[in-house]
Nucleic acid binder design. Structure first.
Length: 583
RNA sequence: GCGCUCGUAGCUCAGAUGGAUAGAGUGUUGGCCUCCGAAGCCAAAGGUCGUGGGUUCGACUCCCGCCGAGCGCGCCA
């Protein structure tokens, strides 16, 4: 419908140009938006206002001229010039009611489109270090990423969801060593656990597995393990302390056995994370290992390419990438003076690999604390000859958890945090998913645990689910009363009151809102849309009886109710929230 | 100090590319169930859009300064 109006205006402007009433070289940009108020019709355009200056006409006069030249169209009932020069379009009721038939035909696919057809897009999200179970801080990225991926797939993109597993690097060595120390304790050694080690209970679980699988084979004496180790804080240096312990572990266990411990810790935690995410309704297409980048020589390959392109230089024994040449605020080290490549080097190789896999667009969903990396990663893509704009970083602000009106504080290292699993078991999957995507990603968000937990009208997710359950209930009522509806030959013209008109219009706007939400990566748009939809439905429900004696009217109303239920299902489905038949 | 993300009703938040009277939920106040689910509906009250300038027919939106919040500024990952 929007497109039709757009075309009509374009034709009118064209006619005006031919009549030389407006300049022929006028740059035309037509905007048509759904009207915000029924008194302003169904759609409105501000062309007359935007064009007024360059056309050299007063906005209202231009609007009138456009309206005069507007070709007739069966779907447009009436056109008005209003306010400072808006053109309001009133659509014929038959036209808007056609959406009911479309919803019936398309069902679960209503709202889907093909605007992304033929384009491969990757969404990488969560990608938390596998050093512990996911906590509530990861939940927002998980919910947003999954919903954005659903939206993109719904509008036709070929979407791949990826999790980047940071299975290399110091944090993982700390993890492995933490497990081994707990294992030694299980063997009967008395260990003073490092303050910087991972202290969560899950470390004990992995250590127990290690003990079960290897017996005492990996046991070493505490004297050996702690020999020549820098003292721990507060007297010593907690960083050096843990690094020394790692070095001793590698020396005492040897390459293969150290790897056994390390790999057990990693794979166990990746499994824990995967299971947690699946229970959260988030399934990844690929788990990409950071270690594989080095194993397959991709890091060296990336560095070589940068070198060949003349973007590297050596200074102080290290190899630097001149990222400042591409807008970064300082140059970055890719290979340290000890020969080890940096995390950033892995990142370069990883992103190079992403684009080499043929994605037209790559979306990274990052926590806001990583914003400092945007410039350097884009700089590296630039230097490698890729289009940096094809990488899109969606930052997600932290969600503060509130309980009893107080902020819940957390720390991964100390093992004091609310896990994603606990949250889900506490407030339920639907409320958890819904709350995370309710606000736009850039907005700092307060997650009210008490509210999410509440099974009452205060909880916004129930408002939508209740509307759906009510619709299903109407169906049940019909069945109980033995009413059989003829939905093939409904008379939508019978839906003529203001509530019904408003509801029908809202239903017709769903595809557009989905499109906007997908293209702008803004799931909260769907939430807001569904809230409006549910509100219109509830109002209608309260004002009118559906199951009436007049069969024709009854069928028409049931058709509208079912269409509303369908759209609620489709919208909630995109967010991974269920649409219950009863509650 | 520099950079990023923000600042909208008592509280939690919507308001894309500048457009009509700045909206919702919650809370407060007052109404609505002999009727398909009251986890609902209707109404009222509630705002110098952090602040001071600027750009123009028009600014919550764009530009500059200031105030406040969160987060970043390693040869860590």
């Amino acid at each position: 419908m929007k497109q039709i109006i757009n075309d009509l205006i374009a034709q009118a402007l064209c006619a005006l140009q031919q009549a030389s009433q407006i300049p022929a070289d006028l740059k035309i940009d037509i905007q048509v938006t759904p009207a915000k108020d029924a008194s302003q019709g169904d759609f409105a355009s501000n062309v007359a206002l935007t064009l007024a200056r360059t056309a050299g006409m007063a906005p209202r006069a231009l609007a009138a001229a456009i309206v005069e030249r507007l070709p007739a169209d069966a779907s447009v009932a009436r056109v008005e010039v209003a306010g400072p020069g808006f053109i309001n379009f009133f659509v014929t009721s038959g036209t808007s009611q056609a959406v009911l038939q479309r919803i019936r035909e398309q069902g679960d696919r209503f709202g889907a489109s093909e605007i992304g057809l033929g384009q491969k897009i990757q969404v990488e999200f969560v990608s938390a270090n596998p050093t512990g179970p996911l906590h509530v801080g990861h939940g927002r990225g998980a919910a947003l990423g999954a919903t954005i991926a659903n939206l993109l797939a719904f509008v036709g993109f070929e979407v791949q969801k990826e999790y980047y597993v940071n299975d290399a690097g110091r944090q993982m060595h700390i993890l492995g060593t933490s497990v081994w120390l707990r294992y030694l304790e299980l063997c009967g050694e008395t260990v003073v656990f490092p303050g910087n080690g991972y202290q969560g209970d899950y470390i004990w679980d992995i250590a127990a597995t290690l003990h079960r699988q290897n017996g005492e084979r990996l046991r070493r004496s505490v004297e050996q393990v702690f020999s020549e180790v820098t003292a721990d804080a507060p007297a010593g240096d907690k960083e050096k302390h843990i690094d020394d312990l790692i070095a001793n572990a590698q020396k005492l266990l040897g390459t293969d056995d150290y790897r056994t411990v390390f790999d057990l810790a990693t794979t166990t935690l990746v499994d824990v994370i995967r299971v947690d995410l699946e229970a959260f309704g988030v399934v990844f297409d690929r788990w990409f290992s950071e270690r594989s980048l080095a194993d397959e020589g991709l890091i060296e390959q990336a560095i070589t390419r940068l070198q060949n392109n003349g973007h590297l230089y050596r200074e102080g024994g290290a190899l630097w990438f001149r990222s400042t040449a591409f807008g970064d605020e300082k140059d970055r080290v890719v290979k340290r003076d000890n020969g080890q490549t940096t995390y950033f080097a892995s990142d370069i190789a990883y992103h190079m690999n992403k684009f080499d896999r043929g994605f037209d667009k790559v979306i990274n969903i990052w926590g806001a604390d990583h914003h400092g990396y945007i410039a350097r990663v884009k700089a590296s893509l630039n230097a490698l000859g890729y289009q940096p704009d094809d990488l899109e970083i969606q930052l997600v602000q932290f969600a503060n958890l509130f309980e009893n009106g107080e902020k819940v504080s957390m720390s991964t290292r100390s093992g004091e945090f609310v896990t994603l699993r606990q949250l889900r078991e506490d407030v339920g999957l639907d409320a958890a998913r819904f709350f995370y995507v309710m606000r736009k990603a850039e907005q700092h968000m307060d997650f009210d645990l008490d509210l999410a937990r509440e099974q009452s009208s205060d909880n916004p997710v129930y408002y939508l689910q209740y509307a759906h359950a009510r619709i299903c209930s109407v169906q049940r009522q019909c069945a109980e009363k033995g009413i059989v509806s003829d939905l093939e030959n409904v008379q939508p013209a019978r839906l003529d009151n203001a509530h019904e008109q408003a509801l029908i219009k809202q239903l017709s706007l769903f595809p557009e809102r989905v499109e906007v939400a997908a293209l702008r990566r803004e799931p909260h748009q769907v939430v807001n849309y569904l809230r409006e939809l549910a509100n219109l439905f509830h109002s209608w429900y309260n004002a009118h009886q559906f199951i009436v004696d007049d069969a024709e009217l009854r069928d028409a109303r049931i058709t509208l109710a079912l269409a509303t239920g369908q759209v609620l299902r489709n919208g909630l489905g995109l967010m991974g929230v269920s649409a219950p038949d009863k509650m």
